[in-house]
Structure formats: C-alpha cells, structure tokens
C-alpha cells in the first residue's frame, strides 16, 4: 500500500512485454475448460509461486510461460475448431447473463466432439477445477518467516518482587 520509491526494483519494459491473449470474456470463459486442462501444469506452477512468494516481480517467468501456453492452445483451437468454437461462444454470449453454458448444450456437444476428435482434448468432469489439488513443483519451498524480535518491550518486575496486601483494602470494595 505504498507508491513505488526509487529503492524498489521494478522489472524493465522488455521483461513485461509478452504476447497477451487478445480475447474477450465470452470467448475466454468458453475456452477456459479445455484451456485450463491443457495448461494445468503452468497454471498450478504460477498460482503456487504467487501464493508462496506473494510478490508479482518474482513470478514473471511462470506467468509468461502460462500465457505462452494459453496462446499455443488458442492457436491450435483456431486452426482446428474455429467455427464450432465461435458458434458456441456466440450462443453463450447471447443466451445467458452470466456466461454459463446451460442453454447452449447443442453447440457445446458439437464443440466438444470437435475438440476430442481433432485435438484429443476431453472436457474435464464437472467440478474438476473446484476441487483442491496437490502440485509437485521443482522450485524449492521458501523458508518460513523468521519469528519477530521486538526490542522495545517494557521492563517487568522480577518474579520474587515483594507484593504486600493493599494497605487500605481493595479499591473495588463491592467485590469483597
């Protein structure tokens, strides 16, 4: 929550320039089921990195690999099943308010069949992405954060300091 100072290292423009996915939400949401399966390893690698290190500057390599994988998938899709895909996402865009494929099962069947026949990609079962999963990464796990040491702790009385009873009784006399 602070504006960048000159002491902060920020990556140069060249490191950040990656071919981005030029698709709008309906097409992306439609393609996401197969795209996530195709780029499963890269997705998990990137999300693990982001969750462990909590620093976008350290996960640029994983992110670039992920976007490259997505572009690769979309190129394959465009080459083989462009018409089926476009029919399906246009249907989803026109027939739903939340981009859900519930009213487009006919076009979805055609699209899924094309994906399976031409690219050998099967639609994952319902709930595949919503489940927790394990991921084995080659990147070493970061060490746990060191315990904090506070130097301005107030001084306390020694344990054997004499504690005589109060001279005039308790102030909270209604408790007695």
């Amino acid at each position: 929550m602070s504006a960048p100072t000159n002491l902060m290292t920020l990556p140069m423009e060249e490191e950040l320039t990656v071919e981005e996915i030029p698709l709008s939400a309906p097409a992306l949401r439609t393609a996401s089921y197969h795209m996530g399966k195709h780029c499963l390893h890269q997705s998990r690698e990137f999300m693990l990195c982001d969750n462990e290190l909590r620093d976008p500057r350290k996960c640029l390599k994983e992110g670039a690999a992920l976007t490259a994988c997505g572009m690769d998938f979309l190129r394959k899709l465009k080459k083989s099943c462009n018409d089926e895909f476009e029919t399906h996402w246009r249907c989803i865009e026109n027939k739903s308010s939340d981009l859900s494929p519930a009213r487009c099962r006919n076009s979805q069947g055609v699209y899924d069949k094309c994906m399976l026949d031409n690219l050998g990609m099967e639609r994952p079962y319902n709930g595949f992405y919503s489940r927790p999963h394990m991921h084995e990464s080659a990147r070493p796990q970061p060490p746990p954060p060191a315990p904090k040491i506070y130097t301005d702790v107030p001084r306390v009385l020694p344990p054997d300091y004499p504690k005589p009873p109060a001279k005039y009784g308790s102030r909270q006399y209604w408790f007695e």
């Binding site: 950040l16 996401s32 795209m35 982001d50 992110g63 981009l99 319902n126 992405y129």
Partner: peptide, 24 residues
C-alpha cells in the same frame, strides 16, 4: 459448479496479465 470451474480455470491467466500491467 460449472461456472465456478470456468472462473477458477481462468484466474491464473487473468492474474498473470494483471501482474504485468500492474508492474508496468
């Protein structure tokens, strides 16, 4: 569940692009 699947599958892609935009 199906909608949630779609969002979960897309999140890494969105986040990667967003991080690059943020740093830029």
């Amino acid at each position: 569940l199906e909608n949630n699947d779609s969002r979960v599958a897309l999140q890494p892609f969105i986040l990667a692009e967003r991080n690059r935009m943020l740093l830029r």
